[in-house]
Amino acid sequence: MASWTSRFAPIVPFALPVGVIALWQLGATTGWISDRVLPAPVEVAQTAVRLTLSGELLGNAGVSALRAVSGLIVGGSIGFAMGLINGLSRVSERLTDTSLQMIRNIPNLALIPLVILWFGIGEEAKLFLVALGVLFPIYINTYLGVRTCDPQLVEMGRIYGMSRWTLFRRVILPGALPSIFVGLRSALGIMWLTLIVAETIAASSGLGHMAMEAREFMAIDIVVLAILIYALLGKLADVITRALERRMLAWHPAYQSR
């Protein structure tokens, strides 16, 4: 029993998606699913190959990924810095936290009309929206992580003569890290959501634009392909975050293989 589970353990997570695709293929081949509702997986795969060969798919995916990552870096850095500053300084927290909470509650997608008026459909619009979207989850969780840092450990650090910088580096920041990762995970979700919506509405390239253009030509296979790629990109982001967590939170009991 144990050998059975260990032998198949790596493929278990993929059993469900593969099964769904198999059923889907079966449904499409037997004509149970109309190809005007959902094209067969094989057809989608052929489209993927075709678009890859023409360079269209990779080009659009690259553009989207670049936008996503740059938005994440810009918004994430700002959120991270604000979270640290407000977590460490009462003055700064009193000054800015209320304003940040107000802005946070505006759905960032509600700004699309305004952003189009400001930036047109250029890159700045997407960067702005993605950055704004990822800023808050990272801000809040960084702030929370710093604030909930164990005061007993901070006292210990003081007793042992740690300088402020060392105290931050060895006690406060590592203590806040699990919380910061929670923020990063939810930021990644918001990042894709914002980007795809923004590209669907106001863009001339990218995956969202590709899907929107395909809809106009009734190319349902491309629409489905785009959606599948979102799923894969989401999984990819998750894998990267997990790897980072495993590395940086190796001390945490939850990440120790036992």
């Binding site: 007993q152 450990l153 006292e155 210990m156 650090g157 007793i159 042992y160 003569g161 740690m162 300088s163 060392t166 060895r170 006690v171 590592p174 203590g175 890290l177 939170l249 001390w251 945490h252």
Partner: peptide
Amino acid sequence: IVFQEPRLLPWETVEQNVSVGLGE
């Protein structure tokens, strides 16, 4: 001083934790 709780840094190894006692 040693407290009732060990107050070790969970993200540092035993060795690193002890080195805290040696200062910066």
